[in-house]
């Protein structure tokens, strides 16, 4: 990353902080606070997807699995124990990490389109399980009546906690990017074979990165539980995965803050529009096609172009393409 862009990072973060903390109080509108709270939680979720897209270079069509798991995990934990909501969310998310690592280790036997498909299948499967385990999860009706302690029950404090978590997560991801961990992740993404020669296992590097992504997604899921007051099976749905993929793509595959901003923006857009139109899916589809065509580097790429720095934007397209080539292939008539 060029120096100019690096220098921009601190002011940008400051701006983000001001926007996040100041705005709702300045305007004092409960509706806006509500909208932004949801947005910030989805911003965190989109940031977690940035780790998948930008750090491992893989595409997941089932990232909703970890959002839903965090949501239901937190709900069950809060129901079973007397723990406060915020520690409960973090506890549930951390407890999910070993499972996540196992699942990723298994899924990473595949790459490219195969990896994408298995993530999709696993998330759909998890959704089905949750819907069928009615006694534990409330089935298709969702899990209501989860006791949420006052620390996150009030809209103001929930917003504050979510914003702090998002900012901490963006800072952590940006910081990690410059450390050895980030370098190894990128080396493995760009050239697994060469990275292996230097002793960096592709599978392990990607497993750990995806584990981190699952952790953040689970935290976002837990926060969303507090936001909605209930856990619902649609959290596992493909729509959730497609939306978060779109957010990270709009943000730019290589841009952490881009993903967060796109998450906030797209959520706010969706929820202001669903008031007027019930055909959000139609718009989502159009946005997909338009972003691919007109904004290939996403917001991050746009920012870099505006800043005239010459960093090569990593596009979602380029990522899928490079991973495609190493994918296993069958002969048509074999």
């Amino acid at each position: 990353m060029p120096r100019s862009a690096r220098a921009l990072r601190a002011p940008l973060l400051a701006l983000l902080c001001i926007a996040l903390f100041g705005w709702p109080w300045v305007t004092g509108t409960p509706g806006l606070l509500n909208l932004l709270t949801g947005g910030v939680i989805w911003g965190l979720f989109a940031l977690s997807y940035h780790l998948v897209l930008g750090w491992t270079g893989e595409i997941s069509f089932g990232h909703s699995l970890w959002f839903g798991a965090g949501m239901y995990g937190t709900a069950l934990l809060l129901q079973a124990t007397r723990v406060d909501a915020l520690p409960g969310i973090l506890l549930a998310a951390v407890a999910l990490v070993p499972l996540a690592l196992l699942v990723h280790l298994l899924s990473l036997r595949l790459r490219g389109p195969y990896f994408a498909m298995i993530t999709f299948a696993l998330a759909e499967f998890a959704g089905l399980l949750v819907q069928n385990a009615t006694s534990l999860t409330g089935g298709t009706n969702g899990l209501t009546g989860v006791p949420i302690s006052p620390d996150l029950a009030a809209p103001g404090t929930l917003y504050l906690s979510a914003s702090l978590l998002l900012i901490a997560a963006v800072a952590a991801v940006l910081w990690l990017r410059g450390t050895r961990v980030g370098l190894v992740a990128r080396a493995v993404r760009d050239n697994p074979t060469r990275a292996a020669l230097f002793g960096h296992s592709e599978v392990w590097a990607k497993t750990l990165t995806l584990g981190g992504a699952s952790l953040l997604a689970a935290i976002a899921g837990g926060l969303f539980l507090c936001y909605q007051g209930m856990a619902f099976p649609a959290a596992f749905g493909s729509d959730t995965s497609f939306t978060v993929l779109l957010m990270a793509t709009i943000g730019g595959a290589d841009s952490a803050w881009g993903a967060a901003v796109a998450g906030i923006g797209l959520y706010a857009l969706e929820n202001s529009l669903t008031a007027t139109t019930s055909h959000w899916g139609l718009l989502l589809g159009v946005v997909y096609i338009a972003v691919v065509r007109f904004l290939p580097g996403g917001l991050g790429g746009l920012w870099r172009r505006v800043g005239a720095s010459r960093g090569r934007a990593v596009t979602t397209g380029a990522i899928l393409e490079s991973s495609d080539q190493s994918a296993p292939r069958g002969g048509l008539l074999r």
């Binding site: 899916g281 096609i289 290939p296 990522i319 495609d324």
Partner: peptide, 26 residues
């Protein structure tokens, strides 16, 4: 028009799916 950009094509097909499903729903 996206020939050579496999990833872009995949995202586009995803968009087409969302549009067709929603159009039928509509």
């Amino acid at each position: 028009p996206l020939y050579g950009n496999v990833g872009g094509q995949i995202l586009t097909t995803l968009g087409v799916m969302l549009i067709l499903d929603e159009a039928v729903n509509w």
